[in-house]
Amino acid sequence: MRLLVLGGTEFLGRAVAEEALSRGAEVTILNRGRHEPPPGVTALRGDRTAPDGLAALTGGEWDAVVDTWSGAPFAVRDATRLLAGRAEGYAYISSRSVYTYPPAPYLAEDGPVVDGSPGDGEDGGEVDYARAKRGGELAAEAVFGDRALLVRAGLIIGPRENTGRLPWWLGRIARGGVVPAPGPRDLDLQYVDARDLAAWTLDALARGLGGPYNAVGPPASTTMGEILEICARVTGAGAELRWIPPETVLARGVAPWTDLPMWLPPGDEHAGLFRGDVSRAIAAGLRLRPLEDTVADTWAHMRADGDPPRRKVGLTDEQEAALLAAAPGDQAC
């Protein structure tokens, strides 16, 4: 396979490039040059938001393209138009956020989606994440039709995660002591390892698949309790997880998802994010490696490479103290 990755140096894009290289593919990446490319790729430079940002792609042909763009969708529109007739398939890494909020539990790919336009953001205006992803989908479909693979991912974790969700928990638990853990302990989570998502995306492109896929693991792939207990095991720090009821967490003004990464309290938002219908992707071959491997490999990369740059997530010391003061003893939740 001759593969073009738009991105290719961070998290999922890098996982795609490395997986393709391991299969013997010829891999070209285009990015802004802010991070070192994986060894073995042909690295091109370009800022997709600049007027001439795609100049490096004016020549060449590829069997498939993987586009990890998360910004305004006009960048996807411009890339697909430029690559029309020079690539067979186009995988756009989208998100389950494209479904109207909050999505119904066990929603399949034919569920209602937000409005979007391929030209959104061209005037420099702000475009919210859901609308941006939907606009990117429409841009890919407008040019590649049924050869556009729309990868609607959910919670992505794994080595080199640059959003900081699993790394924050690993880092905090590694410090030891009493760690506030948001309950209930058996709260179900739905996730995918970036490397498994990368492998599935390449397999799907090789098979000529197109259209939308909810590309994440099965509902109840894990629980909040399981993933935090694995973090405690792999770090070996002897931390004590103190489980705190969700109503106590919310009463202290702690924000789900950002202050407590990966966690949403039981309710419509949680059910919409963590109980998606993924039967189509599973039938097309999506499989998850053991969660213990995902957590252990993430911790190994953190220790070897340092904590990667990421968005601000996690509890402040003041928030942590407030939660522990509100739940001083063992909590059964």
Rank of each mutant, 00 (worst) to 15 (best):
D52M: 07
R32N: 10
G60K: 09
D52T: 08
E26N: 10
A20S: 07
P38Q: 06
A55M: 10
E36T: 15
V41I: 03
T58I: 12
L57C: 12
G60R: 13
A55I: 11
G24P: 11
L44G: 12
P37S: 06
L54W: 08
G59A: 15
R45M: 12
L54R: 02
R32L: 10
R23D: 01
G13I: 04
P51W: 05
E36M: 11
W62R: 04
A17W: 00
L30G: 03
A15C: 07
A15Q: 05
E18V: 01
R32V: 12
D47L: 07
R34Q: 13
L57Q: 09
G13V: 03
T58F: 08
E19P: 06
L21W: 04
R34A: 11
L44V: 11
A17N: 02
G33K: 01
A17I: 01
T42A: 11
G33N: 06
W62H: 06
P39A: 13
L21V: 03
N31H: 05
A25D: 13
V16G: 04
P37L: 02
R23S: 03
R48T: 06
T49A: 15
R45C: 12
R48C: 07
R32G: 13
N31R: 06
L30C: 05
A56H: 04
R32T: 13
T58R: 15
V27D: 01
A20M: 02
L30R: 05
A25K: 03
G33V: 04
A55W: 09
E19D: 15
G60E: 10
N31W: 00
G24D: 05
L44K: 13
R32H: 09
S22M: 01
W62S: 08
D47P: 12
E19A: 15
L57I: 11
G24H: 09
G60N: 09
I29M: 06
I29C: 08
A55V: 13
